[in-house]
Amino acid sequence: MSRRTSPARARAGAERGSRQGARPAPEKKAPKGGRNLPAAIAVGLGLLAVVGASLVYRPVAFVALVVVVLCGAVWELSRAFARKDVHIPVVPLVVGTTGILVSSYYSGAEALMVSYLLTVGGVVVWRALEGSGPAAVRDAAAAVFAATYLPFLAAFVMLMLASDQGPSRVALFILLVVASDTGGYVAGVLFGRHPLAPTVSPKKSVEGMAGSFVLAIVVGLVGAHVLGADPWVGAMLGVAVPITATIGDLAESLLKRDLDLKDMGSLLPGHGGILDRLDSLLMTAPFAYLLMAYAVPLS
């Protein structure tokens, strides 16, 4: 007479076999640095090539490129603000952005201030004509912030471009920020242990900041030699730029946190949006312009 297996024993055997046969699929590990590295490198090199070509070809081509990029950043920021029901007037901001950048390049610092004040007045009046109340005040304040954060800070790059050795100064400024970002990323991935600002940007580390200083100082020394300046000028730029670039990055991280955003956009694979690439550059531009103007006299 054959032995019969009880239903309970049969179920236990089936479950045991299922556990032994079904192995969980291996989890895909996210890149330690939080980026799609191949895409980030390809896009970064492409952006540098476009910027470099515009500087070599004609300064006016670089001005046109910056105008297009900044107008795109205004649109991107307006979409981000709209998530919190803040609506900035895009049309006067785009017109003002173009005016600030072009007048700064052709007419200098005085034109920068005049066009900036006209832009601020224009966006406030534009919003006031659409209605009054707390929402109008909030929208106007956000528009003034946008005019200051984007075209006003970027205009210092135009002042650099219009000065003696302008394309070289702008190229050094951009390469210093790139060096700060690259050095910080590599050192952070390889050696990062101690968070720099854990509540704002958990992936930034003290070790990464040290890497930013090292690579930026190297680039600064080479750039100072190209500009015919003393080596201390390059060292000074190499120390100052990582500080301002990191502040700019952290400031945008705070803004994105308030807006409940991971990235400002998705136009640049591996980088995020336009503003995610401009944050360090914008905050650094006034300081780089002033340091170079002091250390390497303008024509």
Rank of each mutant, 00 (worst) to 15 (best):
137 V>Q: 06
198 P>Q: 02
112 L>F: 01
35 R>H: 12
143 A>M: 12
64 A>F: 14
156 F>T: 04
185 Y>I: 05
58 R>N: 14
214 V>I: 15
128 A>C: 06
67 V>S: 00
21 G>D: 15
81 F>I: 03
212 S>E: 07
286 P>V: 14
142 A>Q: 08
6 S>N: 00
13 G>S: 07
160 M>N: 02
287 F>R: 00
57 Y>T: 07
224 A>Y: 04
23 R>P: 01
68 V>F: 14
227 L>N: 09
101 L>I: 08
21 G>E: 15
84 K>P: 03
278 L>V: 13
57 Y>N: 01
161 L>E: 01
13 G>F: 09
18 S>T: 09
63 V>R: 03
44 G>T: 08
77 L>Q: 02
264 M>F: 12
137 V>F: 12
219 V>R: 01
228 G>H: 06
9 R>Y: 03
114 V>A: 08
39 A>R: 06
96 G>W: 06
11 R>V: 12
124 V>R: 01
171 A>T: 09
293 A>E: 13
254 L>G: 02
251 A>V: 13
181 D>N: 10
80 A>W: 01
249 D>N: 06
252 E>S: 04
89 P>F: 12
45 L>H: 11
227 L>G: 10
275 L>H: 02
182 T>K: 06
267 L>G: 04
104 S>A: 13
155 A>V: 12
99 G>N: 00
287 F>T: 10
21 G>W: 14
25 A>R: 07
83 R>W: 07
203 K>Y: 08
228 G>Q: 05
192 G>L: 11
283 M>Q: 06
250 L>P: 04
295 A>K: 06
185 Y>A: 14
21 G>A: 15
201 S>M: 15
264 M>V: 06
128 A>W: 13
198 P>C: 03
229 A>C: 04
275 L>Q: 03
189 V>T: 10
78 S>K: 07
283 M>R: 01
7 P>Q: 09
288 A>Q: 09
142 A>F: 14
20 Q>K: 15
147 A>P: 00
45 L>C: 15
25 A>T: 07
96 G>R: 02
30 A>Y: 05
23 R>C: 02
283 M>C: 13
97 T>L: 02
97 T>W: 01
212 S>L: 06
31 P>I: 03
265 G>D: 10
193 R>N: 07
181 D>F: 13
139 D>I: 13
188 G>P: 01
106 Y>E: 11
103 S>Q: 04
128 A>T: 10
251 A>I: 09
157 V>D: 02
20 Q>I: 13
26 P>Q: 07
235 A>M: 06
212 S>C: 12
134 P>Q: 12
145 F>R: 00
265 G>M: 13
275 L>G: 03
162 A>F: 03
2 S>L: 12
13 G>C: 03
289 Y>P: 05
140 A>P: 08
158 M>E: 11
47 L>G: 05
222 V>A: 05
239 V>Y: 05
228 G>D: 08
105 Y>E: 00
149 Y>R: 04
230 D>F: 08
94 V>R: 01
281 L>D: 00
46 G>L: 15
7 P>H: 09
64 A>S: 11
181 D>K: 05
35 R>K: 12
128 A>S: 11
282 L>W: 13
149 Y>H: 04
141 A>I: 13
227 L>H: 11
43 V>G: 03
163 S>V: 06
31 P>H: 15
253 S>K: 10
74 V>C: 11
19 R>G: 06
110 E>A: 10
113 M>A: 09
193 R>A: 13
293 A>F: 14
2 S>T: 09
204 K>H: 08
166 G>I: 10
